Simulated assay, not measured.
Amino acid sequence: MAAPASAVAAATGQAYEEAIALTKRLKMPYFRRALEEVVPTAKAQRWDPAEIVRVLLAEEVAGRESSNLRTRRKRAGFPTGKTFHVWDETASSIPAPTQQALRTLEWIGRRENLCICGPSGTGKSHFSEAIGQTAVDAGLAVSWFTIEDLGAIVRRHRVDDTVNKAFNRIARADLIIVDDIGLLPVSDDAAEGFYRLVDSAYEKRSLAVSSNLHPSGFDEIMPKTLATATVDRLLHHAHIAVTSGESHRLNEATTGKGVVSFSS
């Protein structure tokens, strides 16, 4: 009976090279990179074999999780990278208990929606992106759009009649964010795209929408029939957060905090 290949390799001093080859076949790059450091350390400190395996597998898991996080963040398409690390909870007009409840992300698990509405500069986009960043950190898939992005998707996929497929694919994300609705009139394609997205995600995925208008006023910027159908689905299982007050951006500008002061 032939000896196992691993036993032959060990006897001829080729165990390390074989281990490298196996990590390549198993696609374990972080395990492979750690071998160079872990093997001599384990020999010098006489580690238990189980400890060697544990450390190497832990390196592989940590590496994969870090890589997956970077991939999810890139795919989300966030516009600025704003997080809760630079968010002042006390400066927001959204009640603190509401902020804290939304930050738990439990509403995403329940397939509920979030609508943040209020004047420009009151933190809607920042809060929306920070929620999205938190969801990515928690291992969820997130996608970020403006409403005109949705119109572009409609136009691009109308050519080959794959609009439904496109929006069903978008709705695979755990959280879809649509930012800055209401600043300008919505094109017909964008209105259609918004409706298609809301319809595709209805009771299956969570949407977070930020707008200068309350959703009940969406018929001011898009066709009434589409607005009615969209808002009906959007608000059925939705939390509504209303922001108020002066623009944080304008306040920083008028107090000189929006730029770095020139030295005298």
Rank of each mutant, 00 (worst) to 15 (best):
V178G: 10
V178I: 13
V178K: 08
V178R: 07
D179A: 14
D179G: 09
D179W: 12
D180P: 05
D180A: 08
D180F: 06
I181R: 11
I181F: 08
I181G: 09
I181D: 11
G182C: 10
G182H: 09
G182T: 10
G182M: 10
G182V: 09
L183M: 15
L183S: 13
L183I: 15
L183Q: 14
L183N: 13
L184T: 15
L184F: 13
L184H: 13
P185H: 06
V186I: 15
S187Y: 06
S187I: 02
S187A: 04
S187L: 04
D189T: 05
D189N: 06
A190V: 06
A191L: 10
A191K: 06
G193S: 07
G193V: 06
G193T: 05
F194L: 15
F194G: 07
Y195S: 00
Y195D: 01
Y195T: 00
L197D: 04
L197G: 04
L197V: 08
L197C: 12
L197F: 10
V198S: 03
D199T: 06
D199L: 02
S200F: 00
S200G: 01
S200C: 05
S200V: 00
A201P: 07
A201F: 03
A201E: 02
Y202K: 01
Y202M: 01
Y202R: 01
R205D: 00
R205W: 03
R205N: 07
S206T: 09
S206W: 08
S206V: 07
L207N: 08
L207S: 07
L207Y: 04
A208Y: 11
V209Y: 11
S210H: 07
S210N: 13
S210K: 07
S210R: 09
S211C: 13
N212T: 05
N212E: 14
L213K: 11
L213R: 09
L213I: 11
H214Q: 11
H214E: 13
H214N: 11
H214I: 03
P215C: 10
S216D: 15
S216T: 14
S216A: 15
S216V: 15
S216H: 14
G217T: 06
G217P: 00
G217W: 06
G217V: 03
F218R: 13
F218W: 15
D219C: 11
D219L: 10
E220R: 14
I221S: 09
I221L: 07
M222P: 06
P223S: 09
K224Q: 10
K224I: 08
K224M: 08
K224S: 10
K224E: 13
K224D: 08
T225D: 11
L226E: 01
A227F: 04
A227E: 07
A227Q: 05
A227R: 00
A229R: 07
T230N: 02
T230D: 01
T230P: 01
V231H: 04
V231F: 05
D232M: 02
D232R: 01
L234T: 06
